[in-house]
Design a protein around this nucleic acid. Structure first.
Lengths: 138, 138
DNA sequence: AAAATATTTGCAACAAAGTTGCATACTGTT
DNA sequence: AACAGTATGCAACTTTGTTGCAAATATTTT
């Protein structure tokens, strides 16, 4: 597992550092999306805030993780599907935010239906954010 | 028009003040969603930041405007459809963010298709955020 | 129409979130 | 093992959002 993580970093031309490996591992362990604060907590604040910001930014640029739109201000991150590469995100998928526990799920396997946009609008990426009650809270 | 604005405020049990009327007018004039900063600019900074924050919050609570989820941190607001009332938003509609000019459109008349969620997930509200090229930038 | 009451505004101070420059520490390479 | 290149942590700063309170404005009552 440790090796897998290092592999992913190398494949993306990133040097393998403790913080990057640890943060990437967190995403692989977690079934739900993570916020900056979650990462600070789950790493016992061993890394500087700035390092976490920069790591997340790097991962997004490399197509390893993506941001999830949320109605409240907060920024969430989740692993990308394999097809994402640097500069090209293919994250047309469905996100589900639980109103009760707040957990955000990235439902990769659910496909986003075709949306009929008005004339003149050309979509490039479509995100669906559903909220309600998740399987653990019902 | 001025009267219309005052009417809307009164209908929502809000006292009619200059800042509220002006901000609500801005939303009615604008075909696209507005951020806090847009409002500061369009009002020539005549109102305190705090007043704008509180006004937006009040409008959201009353069901006059709603927030739009965006992948980058920013918070956007747009007018609600008539069916929204205090505490109950019916904003299951499609938002479109232009990658070029950044304008965010609220496509009220486009309906959100049914999404097949996994077993155990009960949706309560579904937002679609499409991004791409808008009619003015193509 | 003026006084009384209730609400809103703006200021100041604060808290949280995110960014930048730079010296130090670490990683990968020769 | 030494070197070059990159990442990290610190400090300082900016931006964004919040709270308490006195002054100002809106609404209600007389």
């Amino acid at each position: 597992m440790k090796n897998d993580i290092a592999e992913i970093l190398k494949r993306n031309q990133l040097s393998v550092t403790e913080s990057r490996a640890k943060i990437l591992e967190l995403f692989h362990e977690s079934r739900s999306a993570l916020a900056h604060a979650d990462i600070e907590n789950k790493t016992d604040e061993s890394y500087d805030r700035v390092t976490i910001y920069r790591t997340l930014q790097t991962f997004v640029e490399k197509g390893i993780i993506h941001t999830i739109p949320t109605a409240d201000n907060s920024v969430l991150y989740a692993l990308c599907k394999d097809e994402c590469t640097q500069g090209k995100h293919n994250d047309n998928h469905v996100h589900f935010i639980c109103d009760i526990c707040g957990t955000t799920y990235c439902l990769d396997h659910i496909t986003v239906p075709e949306i009929n946009l008005p004339k003149g609008f050309t979509p490039h990426c479509t995100d669906v954010v559903a909220s309600g009650i998740c399987k653990n809270c019902k």
